[in-house]
């Protein structure tokens, strides 16, 4: 029997490998985004300059393309997987025993948290990338004042709450996602399983705490 490697790339196992690899990339992106965002707390000027450097660099188009590509990969295979999965059980169980621990909840809700996060990301890009354009000058260089936009945006408590919810969803998504990626690409094993589980908890907690800090911090700045 001859096997097509291309076909194998569409197999059930490769589907989750694609989701895992793209997910890992997106997690790294989250960390980078986190590092950039944290500058807003250190110094508004530093933050605005960082943003300016990023968007004024022609390399940004390539970087954005890469990010979009991985998002697309992640979403495409996730949707395909889920559609096939629903088809694999035409009649669902009348009664289903549900486990209520966080890990199980996180894994069971991946398609839903994922879909909500997609909505969030679209809104996030509209709100910030294509949001109001304030300017500011540092040493004669004019640039976008993203900091002002942030303070204004998160001055609204509804936006803060929406972000806190979205970041909680994200942390739930990565709680399963990070461990799952190690499992999918096959480096998990009995001796490392606990480590990977702990790592995914740690990652999830870091993401939720740090990303929630930003809107809350902005809100507090506005109140002051």
């Amino acid at each position: 029997m001859s096997l097509s490697v291309i076909k194998a790339f569409r197999s059930s196992i490769f589907k989750k490998i694609w989701v895992a690899l793209s997910g890992m990339f997106l997690c790294i992106f989250l960390l980078g985004h986190l590092a950039g965002n944290s500058m807003m707390i250190i110094n508004p000027e530093m933050f605005n300059r960082y943003a300016h450097t990023l968007i004024s660099n022609p390399f940004i188009y390539f970087a954005e393309a890469v990010i979009v590509f991985f998002f697309f990969l992640h979403i495409f295979w996730a949707i395909k997987t889920n559609v096939e999965n629903w088809r694999a059980r035409p009649i669902s169980y009348h009664k289903r025993a549900t486990k209520w621990d966080l890990q199980s909840l996180a894994s069971a809700t991946m398609p839903y948290t994922g879909a909500l996060l997609l909505v969030f990301i679209v809104k996030h890009i509209i709100d910030f990338k294509y949001g109001p354009y304030y300017t500011i000058s540092y040493e004669g260089v004019q640039m976008r004042n993203l900091y002002q936009l942030l303070l204004e945006y998160f001055g609204n408590i509804h936006n803060v709450i929406a972000y806190v919810i979205a970041m909680t969803l994200l942390s739930i998504h990565v709680l399963h996602g990070v461990w799952s990626a190690f499992q999918s690409i096959g480096i998990n094993r009995s001796t490392l399983n606990t480590t990977f589980r702990r790592f995914s908890y740690l990652f999830s907690v870091i993401i939720v705490i740090s990303y929630i800090t930003f809107p809350v911090w902005c809100y507090i700045q506005g109140v002051k």
Binding site: K7, S11, S12, I13, T81, E84, A88, S107, S180, S184
Partner: peptide, 17 residues
């Protein structure tokens, strides 16, 4: 070969739950 057969039989995909 075994994964190929499994995929063709109409089972769902694993999502590590």
């Amino acid at each position: 070969n075994m994964i190929k057969a499994m995929d063709e039989l109409g089972f769902g995909n694993c999502t590590n739950q």
